[in-house]
Design a binder for these strands. Structure first.
Lengths: 365, 365
DNA sequence: GTTAGCACTCTCCCCATTAGAGTGCTAACA
DNA sequence: TGTTAGCACTCTAATGGGGAGAGTGCTAAC
């Protein structure tokens, strides 16, 4: 019974670690509970199955493995995977061949378009066989590059091209019917006066525009006053749009390869997975995670029930932040069953996030 | 045996039609083969099950129903659904309540953004319980509204805002390193000279720009000549981008509610569905269908194996074109199992496509 | 500390049986 | 002549009872 006296959590001896690693790596491949016989057969442990059984019992007592039922082999617990990821996983640098493949794929697409983010999701999906996730790099504070206005009766639709990040479109209601010529004048003026400014800086300008429309010495019905009012209204509206964009931590989540995950045997009769998908559509969740993630290089692994929403209890996330804090950040990563090839996923995510860093540096330099 | 002598295809008497309709509507709800007893019980046919059995045998001989096996009830064939859709289906105008719900949803979102198309897909999905599909309205010939250029060494990234349709971004390589001030000059000039023009019209201008750079009397190294060359290069590139956009029949397919379809019992153990999804990602397919569809008001129904790709043999599409031919057209519709509530799907697609027509009229007026 | 041996437990698969659903046919009926 | 009741027949789906097999935990010997 000496074995059972070992502390539930604590330093595992090298042999136990080797066996834990073997169980996990076997289970990741076969998706069926791993027995002692299979281990001695496929991994040259230099031990008999009886000895291995003893160690397996220890690992189970330590909470790193479980038993679906008495006469089945062991499967890793979330804690088992956690231990594996933190201290047992092999080198997580991606083989050169795969690096090349990814670089090649990225080379095919043009810079400076949101295709990058879709491509990142697609690449991650195809390389890992799990679902790939990516968000666009969202700038910390949007700066205006150009504004374009089109008249529509007493409405105007606007296109707002920021210096970085994604284009915004919208509408604003005008205080009166305005023709295109006047709107173009307004847009030109604002393009000159507000270029490169952030939401806050534009907001600071707004009172001045309104003041110009209501100066004591000015006829409020004059064309000049009316146009000043219009300028103020437009400036206010685009500042609001930019402010809203700044407030959101994530603009859009691209995903690809959800079907890969669907195919995994543990989700064959998938009730659970549906809820995972809907949880994923909630951008707030990834946004929260983004807040928790530190360091551009670090890979964050969230295993099974470590994910706070219960729906995510059967899947793991391997995520990395990319970009420059304070400038623009986004998330890339993969989602898969907890039974996931973590080292490879970590390597792939790390490499792709590195590429995304390069991209951001390039675009925001 | 008199019954068997009836022509395989031909005018069905009213009773046979009523029974066919009953079988289909029952099967759509229950998803299990329909027997004669169930029919006399739930539909007041004023007949005995034995008589109904006779009629069912006729309908099967006519190819409108099948038999999974001897002792099971009947299920409709693709031809049965086709007959139903064409001559038996109840009124396909959407109930006022549902019309209101849809209008309400559409009222929530801003005009003039691509949210409309996503919204159409989402609405169709939620209203029909199938998957919703929508493509953006693609203009027949893009016209330039505004061009924006940003320098990046010897590259420039451009944003091309068309008068209608979706914004395009891209990059072009420059013949030399160009600073932002010069690029802005170029953009301003092109914005003045090319505003409102189509790809063809812009292409027509390009030779003139190049000619200006190589006029006999001009110093080829002069700033003026070099800038004219640049103008030509940029004009050429944006014309190409617009031309490519014109050539594509569909720019992007939004879909929503694919999970709805996944949940249908016929796809519980879904090998097939995966292939459907991948087939759907191929935009060319919807593009081909778009070409086949005529008339803005008409709803097109493609049932099971009527779809040319074999993968689509187990699903049906209910699609409508919307927009103005020659100006801008797109597709909306739903995808679901062949066992689909066709009248309701047709009504919903019809109503939504009507709304999309209004939208296009509004935007392109 | 390790190993061989062994009893034990549990799942999974196969098989036979059965209940039930639904048909097709026939003979009687209106 | 069309309709109906009755009935034999067929096939599926569900049920339950064995093995067979996998894998464990324990013990005694090395």
């Amino acid at each position: 019974m000496a074995r059972r006296d070992r502390p539930a959590i604590g330093p595992l001896d090298a042999r136990a670690q080797a066996i834990l690693r073997a169980v996990i790596e076997e289970y990741v491949v076969t998706a069926t509970p791993v027995g002692s016989a299979a281990l001695v057969e496929r991994y040259h442990l230099g031990l008999s199955s009886a000895t291995v059984r003893g160690v397996l019992a220890d690992l189970e007592a330590a909470g790193l493995l479980t038993h679906p039922h008495t006469s089945a082999g062991r499967i890793p617990t979330d804690r088992g995977y956690r231990f594996y990821v933190e201290s047992l996983a092999d080198s997580t640098t991606l083989p050169a061949v795969e690096q090349l493949m990814i670089r090649h794929q990225f080379g095919q697409v043009q810079f400076a378009s949101d295709h990058w983010f879709r491509l990142a999701a697609t690449t991650l999906a195809s390389m890992t066989g799990s679902a790939g996730l990516a968000t666009a790099a969202k700038p910390a504070a949007v700066r205006l590059r150009r504004l374009d206005l089109v008249a529509q009766d007493h409405l105007a639709s606007f296109v707002l091209v920021p210096l970085e990040g994604t284009i915004k479109q919208g509408q604003l209601s005008l205080p009166r019917r305005v023709d295109q010529a006047e709107l173009t004048r307004v847009a030109n003026r604002l393009n000159v006066e507000l270029a490169g400014l952030t939401a806050a800086a534009i907001e600071a300008q707004v009172p001045a525009y309104y003041a110009a429309a209501t100066l004591p010495g000015i006829d409020h019905d004059s064309a000049q006053a009316r146009e000043a009012l219009l300028v103020g209204r437009v400036a206010e509206r685009i500042a609001r749009t930019m402010r809203e964009s700044d407030a959101a931590s994530i603009e859009e989540v691209y995903s690809d390869g959800l079907l890969n995950v669907m195919e995994a045997p543990e989700f064959a009769h998938s009730e659970k997975l549906r809820r995972v998908f809907t949880a994923l559509e909630n951008r707030a969740y990834l946004g929260d995670l983004l807040g928790m993630m530190t360091g551009s290089g670090r890979i964050h692994v969230f295993i099974g029930h470590e994910n706070t929403p219960a729906e995510m209890g059967d899947v793991s996330l391997v995520l990395a932040r990319y970009g420059r804090p304070g400038r623009a950040v986004g998330v890339v990563g993969v989602l898969g069953p907890t039974r996931m090839a973590y080292p490879h996923a970590i390597g792939t995510v790390g490499f792709v996030s590195g590429l995304m860093n390069e991209l951001v540096d390039h675009l925001y330099s």
